[in-house]
Amino acid sequence: MHKELADYLNSVVSGADAKALEAEVGDSSILVATEHILKVCQALKDSEEHQYNVLQTISGVDYPEGVGEDKTPVIEVNYMIASFIKNTEVILKVRVPRGDDENLPKVDSVCSVWIAADWQERECYDLLGVDFVGHPDPRRILNPYDWKGHPLRKDYKAQEVYQGMTVYPEDKQNIPEQDFVVEQNRLNDEAKAAAKKAREESKKDS
């Protein structure tokens, strides 16, 4: 199914460069060229044959060490698209170079295709720092509007001070020695060792 859809996209949008990524486990997906994502989405929505009328979510994934063989750091943006008329579903992917805080990766906004993209793209911008070009209202959505950085990037470090408050103060940190589970495991091990020792001693005595 993914192969046919990729062929269809290549035939409708020139330069879409759609590739079906067949997975052995889990879901397969379709990778398209970043600069044509808007045209691809429009084509999927407009086509009589497929009628992908719902954008369910946009999920960004950060790969600082690249995907598979390719070692260029990328951010992958996944569009979960479904057709509630034909009862089908597909994952569209684009991969953009990761960039840095001053130079965010750029992807065309698909708000003009599905309004659902509005908040989903805002979330993706907030958490992963993807700049959606042409978005009507590019604000943060989950974090405060004056927050710095993009938390779901793998190399994210929280800012130290926010509005005069210390972020993640030391006495609230979950260091291993204070960790309840670790402590319980240590106590359990000690108790087991003591019991074993006692058993061995009682054997010796008898």
């Binding site: 997975a23 052995e24 486990v25 889990g26 879901d27 997906s29 369910q56 979510t57 999920s59 994934v61 996944n78 979960m80 579903e89 994952i91």
Partner: peptide, 21 residues
């Protein structure tokens, strides 16, 4: 195993989807 999945279920308030990589 290496891969990804998008699984959705019908919850009390609508569809909940998990995208797990």
């Amino acid at each position: 195993p290496k891969g990804e999945i998008y699984m959705k279920t019908e919850c009390a308030r609508g569809e909940l989807g998990y995208h797990i990589v």
